[in-house]
Computed example of a mutant assay.
Amino acid sequence: MSEAITLTAEARKDVGKGASRRLRRADLVPAIIYGGEQSPAQITLAGKAIRKMLQTDSFYSQILTIEVEGKKQQAILKDVQRHPAKEIAMHLDFLRVDADHALTTHVPLRFLNEDICVGVKDQGGAITHSRVEVEIRCLPANLPEFIEVDMAGVELGNHIHLSDLTVPEGVEFVAMLQGEGHDLDVASVQATRATKGDEESGEAATEEAGEE
């Protein structure tokens, strides 16, 4: 479990593109907190702190505590608008969470045992990731920081789907709520060019032996 994250913010009354540009020149990041029974709140955050958080995986899936002028509220990060050429945040969107109400959000997938995957190590294939995050629905208390995908036993040509993953109690995949036809592909082990070449050579040799 990652360490809890608390962000200190200031209320922002001056809005608009011009105001946002002035904030960024002062190394501040404009943001908004919305959702719940409270009205949306415009805030600013320290640019240095946000640059650090953007490099922390748990920032994207953990329930955050945001303190605005002494008042704390819990929220999750819903969107980051980044500069097109620089690794900086231009604007952040946070969604308030309520302990009694389910939330819908994306969490990252953590792929395990890729180095000992049967389909790669013994059968010459390569792992393909169909997605790196999944959308889930759960109460805030059940929110996982990530969902593990164990690749150890996956053989060449096989796939892992959402239904193959183990999730904490109370966590549901949004896609699966739509029915069995939405059991999305997560990862697979596919043949490489070298593998296909070996297979073709083997088939050719078998055919030649049969002709003899």
Rank of each mutant, 00 (worst) to 15 (best):
E69W: 07
F111R: 04
D115F: 05
M151Q: 08
R25F: 03
L77V: 07
Y34W: 05
K196H: 07
I32L: 10
K71A: 15
Q123I: 07
D93W: 06
I5W: 02
Q73M: 15
L165I: 06
G179I: 11
R96S: 08
G35A: 09
V132E: 04
I33N: 03
A191S: 14
L109H: 06
T192W: 09
H182F: 15
M90H: 10
E200C: 05
P168Y: 03
R137M: 08
A11F: 05
T6E: 15
R24W: 07
D57P: 13
D79T: 09
A85P: 00
F146M: 10
T104W: 01
N113D: 04
T56E: 14
P40I: 04
K13Y: 12
A175S: 15
A205I: 05
I127W: 06
A175K: 06
D198E: 15
M176F: 01
K86F: 09
A126K: 13
D122P: 00
E212K: 10
Q73K: 12
T44I: 08
T44M: 01
G202I: 03
V80Y: 00
D100V: 10
L7D: 07
L112D: 06
K78H: 11
H159M: 06
S58A: 15
S58W: 08
A205Q: 12
L177H: 08
K196A: 10
P144I: 11
H161F: 12
F173M: 08
V80I: 13
F111K: 05
Q178D: 14
P84I: 09
T206H: 07
T166I: 12
I50A: 03
A209K: 10
P144A: 10
I147T: 02
M90R: 13
N113A: 05
E67A: 09
D115H: 13
A187S: 11
I147A: 03
D183R: 08
Q178H: 14
